[in-house]
Write a protein that binds this DNA or RNA. Sequence first.
DNA 1: ATAGAATATTCCTGTAAAGGAATATTTTGA
DNA 2: TCAAAATATTCCTTTACAGGAATATTCTAT
Lengths: 108, 108
Amino acid sequence: MNVQIFSALAEPNRLNIVELLLEGPLQVGDIAKKLEMNQPQTSKHLRVLCDAGLVEVQPVANRRIYRIKPEPLQELDKWLNSYRRLWEARMDRLDDYLDVLQGKKTLN
Amino acid sequence: MNVQIFSALAEPNRLNIVELLLEGPLQVGDIAKKLEMNQPQTSKHLRVLCDAGLVEVQPVANRRIYRIKPEPLQELDKWLNSYRRLWEARMDRLDDYLDVLQGKKTLN
DNA sequence: ATAGAATATTCCTGTAAAGGAATATTTTGA
DNA sequence: TCAAAATATTCCTTTACAGGAATATTCTAT
């Protein structure tokens, strides 16, 4: 699992941008307006999201339209799924572990 | 969606710890050994994971056994699901947006 | 009570990242 | 070609965070 997506989403403004773009593509100015950020910071955050592959640009005339790239979200989903049975059940392996501590079992 | 979980998972060592603990509870020393980190940094990262609610402690004698708390992962899963249809289809709303730009439709 | 094991915390330092302000760049429209 | 709009980048400053080393804390066992 690539850590970059977590890093990109760890910033509140960027998470807001992603949630906004999930509803549809937008140009920079409108993102800034809707989220009440100023333009330079918006561009900077979009750059980070771009680098993380969460977003892509489509230049149209004067504007730059940003939209979500689903791949990283799919990857995150796959990661969660691969561990789902572990964190869903979580059948207290704690008891087993206590046995290990008491020498009844061995640790790998 | 709380940003704290992303922030906690944005550090490679911490992501490793989480993936390790998903397979079962472990005490600090063993985590450090398995991930080849030294003990103080391990404790520090565990603290961050604790604060983020991703992990909980169970003191047993001398040791402290850490284990996964599934709630934040469930929350993350719910977040992904709530947007799934958006990023899965992504039916190019770009065309719609281009119409907006040309004044054929209006923006909210 | 005390030594020792396991773990947590503190102090220090370097580095990365975020916001503000200013400026550069790109593209359009005339 | 030129002014203006939209966006990106740079510079600066402040803050947060990570690792290393040392030390404090907590608990056990004797």
